[in-house]
Design a protein around this nucleic acid. Structure first.
Length: 429
RNA sequence: GGAGGGUUGGCCGAGCGGCUUAAGGCGCACGAUUGGAAAUCGUGUUUGCGUUAAUAGCGUAACGAGAGUUCAAAUCUCUUGCCCUCCGCCA
């Protein structure tokens, strides 16, 4: 949600920022309606004031035994006028909120305008592994080593699901354990939130109403629209933790991380080059999240990016970091860095972490505030999130980048403690 | 799944149609008192919206949420969220 006062005072400025995201808006009609709306508020509130005054007379008159019939008639008249004003206002409010809620966040000043093609690679770490043999695709590798069972996954859940088996399950869990240990060491608090969330959570995160179709919706038999959904990322849960709260400034920054599977419909987004575990309906992810005061959010974003990058680095994988152009950031975000790992078989980099600052956009939607010490007044907090990390692309990257000529896979050193010291995975007999 | 009870300002808790501008207490802040402190006394102590140069005033709204009855709703009716107790079922 954008600050309506900013739109009132500097509509051209807001429109220009939005155009960098590829969104064209003309606020003329909106501002005119806003003026009318405020005038109606004034009129209706004046009527309410009159109503309150008149109503206060009644008990005294009754006590004195006076005839209150004319006052009752007057009250009736005012009440009807108030009701009419309130109804009209409710309609205008709804219209205005719908419009405001549909506007994406404004990009930060240093974010390039335009779409994907304007993303800037700002860091490349390591080098593409040079194979002395012909490297295999991760699907072939994990099937040979019996790490993932795609066939039975599809039997259980349909296309886009898989089963981790044996060392594959252990490797997956080792990754999560490694991430958890790192985040705990950095002073982040671990959370395990519910996976089923109520509708409001999706609204606060900025995913609803626009992206309602992207999540698995849960509906009660007796209701028309869905009331709950399965979370597409732990971010949706974490951003709602302090919804409708006013926190002490002293408690900020709050640093959390959560492990959840992420459930996404991914309808129509399957591409043939993404066979395997690049894009599934369910994948494991650890999500980092921070609540900060506005002055600290830029530094917090840098911290999150470097934390996520550090994990990929410690796994010994070749990756790069990009700053996304305005149009490639999701709607709620003012600035996003993507960390992309090299997948040899795709000859491309795939996202393993997206680190973003929402500024106060989500805070406004969810009324997430803190009491500013300086003024003593409530102010909107800033929210930031980053994957740390999603395993569904890290796993293939490890398998492909660490593959040996005989089809075995070396286990990155940092993961070995969580795999009983095991150093490599051989192809299954 | 069934039957009850509850939901009120930061917290506890009264109020069950209009003398409530939400009693009283606790906590917190400031002031008085004191050599200093405790105790005591006094004052203040929510958020949104509108108006405004204003974080000053004034107005307005909010007693879990939504709808209704009424001239008037924290208070009555209906729907619903959540919490508690008991019963049933089940991992």
């Amino acid at each position: 949600m954008l600050d309506i006062n900013l739109i009132r005072n500097q509509p051209e400025f807001v429109a220009e920022k939005l155009s960098r995201k590829g969104v064209t808006v003309d606020f003329t009609d909106f501002l005119e309606q806003d003026r009318q709306r405020r005038q109606l508020i004034r009129q209706t509130e004046d009527l309410k004031a009159e109503k309150n005054k008149t109503s206060a007379l009644i008990p005294g008159m009754k006590k004195d035994g006076k005839d209150i019939t004319p006052v009752l008639a007057e009250m009736k008249k005012i009440s009807d006028a108030v009701r009419e004003g309130d109804e009209q206002l409710a309609r205008l409010d709804q219209e205005q909120n719908r419009f405001l809620a549909s506007l994406p966040n404004l990009p930060a000043d240093d974010v390039p305008a335009g779409g994907k093609e304007n993303n800037q690679v700002i860091k490349i770490s390591g080098e593409k592994p040079a194979f002395t043999f012909s490297p295999k695709h991760h699907v072939d590798l994990v099937e040979a080593a019996k790490l993932i069972d795609y066939t039975r996954g599809a039997k259980l859940g349909g296309s886009g699901f898989w089963v981790y088996t044996g060392d594959g399950a252990r490797l997956e869990w080792a990754l999560l354990n490694f991430f958890i240990a790192e985040h705990l060491q950095d002073g982040y608090q671990m959370l395990l939130p519910p996976h089923i969330l109520s509708y409001d959570c999706g609204y606060t995160a900025g995913q609803f109403p626009k992206f309602e179709e992207d999540v698995f919706q849960l509906k009660r038999e007796d209701q028309e629209s869905f009331t709950h959904f399965i979370l597409p990322t732990a971010e949706t849960a974490l951003v709602n933790l302090h919804r409708d709260e006013i926190m002490d400034e002293d408690t900020l920054p709050l640093k959390y991380f959560a492990y959840t599977p992420c459930y996404r419909k991914e309808a129509g987004s399957y591409r043939s080059e993404e066979r395997g575990m690049i894009r599934g309906h369910q994948f494991n992810k650890i999500e980092l999240f921070q609540y900060t005061v506005p002055e600290q959010s830029d530094a917090a974003l840098e911290e999150l990016v470097s934390k996520a990058a550090d994990l990929v680095e410690k796994l010994g994988l070749h990756y790069r970091v990009s700053k996304l152009a305005a149009g490639d950031c999701s709607a709620s975000m003012r600035k996003t860095y993507d960390i992309e790992v090299w997948i040899p078989s795709m000859n491309d980099y795939k996202e393993v972490s997206s680190a973003s600052s929402a500024g106060d956009y989500q805070a406004r939607r969810g009324s997430i505030r803190y009491r500013a010490k300086k003024t003593g007044k409530p102010a909107f907090a800033h929210t930031l999130n980053a994957s740390g990390l999603a395993t569904s692309r890290i796993f293939p990257a490890i398998v492909e980048q660490y593959q040996q000529e005989d089809g075995s896979i070396l286990i990155p050193e940092v993961l070995r403690p969580w795999m009983g010291g095991q150093k490599k995975i051989d192809i299954a007999p």
